[in-house]
Design a protein around this nucleic acid. Structure first.
Lengths: 207, 207
DNA sequence: GACAGAACGGAACCGTACGTTCCCTTAAGA
DNA sequence: TCTTAAGGGAACGTACGGTTCCGTTCTGTC
């Protein structure tokens, strides 16, 4: 349990948690803030990641994998299509994957693995959207990209501590879901939905 | 029409427009970016505003005044309460006041006039909310502060150029309004709504 | 009970970015 | 022609932050 290696393994996790917390609350935070939050020195960071960019890539990759995991779990559910969809959105809000993948967009160079995972995540998102739509539970004029942008909006909420933020996000997610669900008295949505290219444009280095 | 003074007066407006555009798209933008966007030199800025902070205060104050104006206009409307309310929200989204007042929060020291206007804006917001709620047109579990946070979320949308951004914001505003309007089949909202103190906390210098 | 070396803390280094100042040029009005 | 408001933009000083580096500590081993 004790020993240098155990300490190092604990620091691995400590650093990742700190980095997640720091960068989601301030994407431009200095690397020293991460070290301080983790209660370690700067060397402990640079021993693990060759640069700040590498750390960001790792965080973003983890976020994407979490997104994939949550969505796959929802797709595996057998019961009510709407409930699976709603649970998926709640899970994504809890996982706070939008903060990690969106707010950091353009601040580093995406790796190939990241591209692969992003593509996979996109496919899964389309799948659960399609399934929900085909069950007639989802407002028909709402697209997958609408849902993505909706999650981003919810991720933009940040008020008080982490707990309060999560609470408020769920409040507004519930509000949004009332507008998404069928049946309801919906008015036609103005303007075309976001396009894939529009969402993807932010990932260019010059973002 | 010509003359040094006419040119200067034109620059006054040019600089303000440029500053609005630059700082709403990037609150941390350097002052040189404003000068470049306005097509003037840095001196032209410093001749008008003693510091960057003064410029930000001016911008924020203008935004607040616009907010007040739009809301007062909606309150003056006589017809359907919901329509006045909805028009007010659309006007606020068009005016993009949330970007200016929220994203710059904490980046400068608020003046007294700013505090006064903010208080006035708050009163007006409560007024139109109360009027709409009393008319039975608004979902009863939604508070004024909910609406504020909703507008902030919508302001967080930024995709493509200014025109496209406005279009998307209206799309999501329409979606949100479908969830706000009575009658509809609403589920209970989880968690307490945002409190005034929570929203105000961001304006402290250490924001 | 020394020793090799992994793990680490944190000061120092260095490049960059940005707010502000300063000086020179320009041209309008007298 | 002269004065002076107005402006352009280089230069200055500072602060910030990524990265490096060196000294220290502690573990597992001979």
């Amino acid at each position: 349990m004790s020993g240098r290696k155990a300490q190092a393994a604990r620091n691995d996790e400590l650093i990742l948690q700190a980095a997640r917390a720091v960068f989601t609350s301030d994407p431009g935070a200095p690397i020293a803030a991460v070290a301080e939050k983790a209660g370690v020195g700067i060397s402990a960071l640079y021993r693990r990641y060759p640069s700040k960019e590498a750390l960001l890539q790792k965080l973003c990759g983890d976020g994407l994998k979490l997104y994939i995991e949550v969505t796959e779990r929802a797709l595996a559910e057998e019961g009510d299509a709407w409930e699976a969809f709603a649970g998926c959105l709640r899970g994504l809000v809890d996982a706070d994957t939008s903060s990690l993948t969106i707010k950091l967009a353009g601040t580093f160079h995406p790796t190939e693995e990241l591209d692969r995972d992003a593509a996979r995540a996109g496919v899964l998102a389309e799948e659960i959207h399609r399934r929900t739509a085909e069950a007639g539970a989802l407002r028909p004029d709402v697209t997958v990209t609408d849902i993505s942008l909706l999650l981003e909006q919810i991720a933009s909420i940040r008020l008080g501590d982490e707990k309060r933020t999560a609470q408020l996000r769920h409040r507004f997610l519930a509000l949004a879901m009332d507008a998404l669900r069928v049946p309801a008295g919906h008015r036609e949505l103005p303007g075309p939905p976001p396009e894939d290219a529009e969402l993807a444009a932010r990932w260019s280095p010059a973002g």
